[in-house]
Simulated scan of single mutants.
Amino acid sequence: MKIGIIGAGRMGSALVEGLLRAGIRARDIWVSDKDEGKLERMRSLGVRVAPKEGVLACEVVFLAVKPKEVREVLEGISGFRNILVSVAAGVPLKEFERLEGAKLFRVMPNILCRRREGAMALCPGRADARSVKVVRELLSQLGRVVEVEEGQLDAVTALSGSGPAFFARLLEAAVEEAVRLGLPKERALELAAQTMRGVGGEVLEGRDPEDIVESVASPGGTTEAGLRELGEVKPLRKAIRKAWERARELAG
């Protein structure tokens, strides 16, 4: 199966790298972009570079351009009847319905797809059962996939789309404070990252986050003292809401 990606920016590149790590042959990945510098990097990965028209011949095409560029990309497309998966934040499925016969999807992935550790929310539009199976199986090679309604995608954008940056900033702050307290930076990074990974693993196995908090926070202990200072983590809540508001603005 040939996989096309229109847009070789951050998200498009992450998809390419993840697919290659998943064992997809480089010759089966076709990429298009207006930026020759980005295409040169794609060539260095061994994937095929082609004009938009060539990429549209692939069985599955990911549209990984900025939201404001979607209409420009759609102009002049006719006769496309394959699978189109849009990763453009805020652009509704109705924008793609002009592509009669195409199987339409929206997905909100994140940059961690490059490591095959992505968190992805899939929203099928006009698509048959076979197409849904193909897209879900393909995305599953890049991380964890959940299915959501289209109206929930802005919240997904704020939570897991922007989430890697938010969680990385939290990790960075924890490491900086540990360094001030005497830990070497490389040791602090390793310990903090492993702790974050471990908490995520516990939650994905079904454990409630509050249960983790309670299991660590002994009465009168060090964790309880820190939690009192942390409070309700209002800055993170505000960051997610601001990202959600911006996603809704992009949707118009």
Rank of each mutant, 00 (worst) to 15 (best):
K2D: 14
A178P: 06
S215E: 12
A155T: 14
V203Q: 01
G231C: 11
C123W: 07
E249R: 13
V199P: 04
A129Y: 07
G23D: 09
R41N: 00
G226P: 13
E117W: 06
L250P: 11
R48E: 13
I77R: 08
E100P: 00
K66N: 04
W30R: 03
R25Q: 13
D28A: 09
V55L: 02
L204W: 04
L93I: 12
V47T: 07
G200A: 11
R237N: 00
M108N: 01
P235N: 06
E17K: 14
L170M: 12
V179D: 08
R144F: 14
A50Y: 01
R21M: 10
E205D: 07
R237V: 14
L159S: 08
G79L: 10
F62I: 05
A155W: 12
G4R: 06
R98Y: 01
G90Q: 05
K185F: 07
M11R: 01
D128M: 07
R237P: 00
V233I: 15
E176H: 06
V49A: 01
L139T: 10
G118H: 04
E95G: 00
C113Q: 02
E172N: 03
L104E: 06
V132Q: 09
R197D: 05
L189M: 11
D211A: 13
R71F: 02
R197E: 13
G198Q: 09
G101I: 09
D35T: 00
G9T: 03
R114T: 00
W30K: 01
V91I: 15
R130H: 10
A193K: 11
G18A: 07
L39F: 09
A193R: 13
G23Y: 06
P184K: 11
A174S: 14
E245K: 12
L250S: 10
R81T: 15
G18Y: 10
A173C: 12
E202Y: 12
V146H: 06
P124D: 11
A174E: 07
I29T: 07
G125Y: 13
G182C: 13
V61I: 09
R144Y: 13
G79E: 09
N110V: 02
I77C: 05
G182F: 14
K68N: 05
G206K: 02
L142V: 08
L153D: 02
C113A: 15
R10E: 07
R71Y: 01
E186R: 14
A165V: 10
P209G: 05
R114P: 00
R187W: 11
E75L: 05
L104K: 10
L139N: 09
V199L: 14
K2T: 15
E177R: 14
E205C: 00
F167T: 13
P51N: 03
G79P: 08
V107Q: 02
A239W: 06
I83W: 10
I77E: 07
V60K: 10
I212T: 03
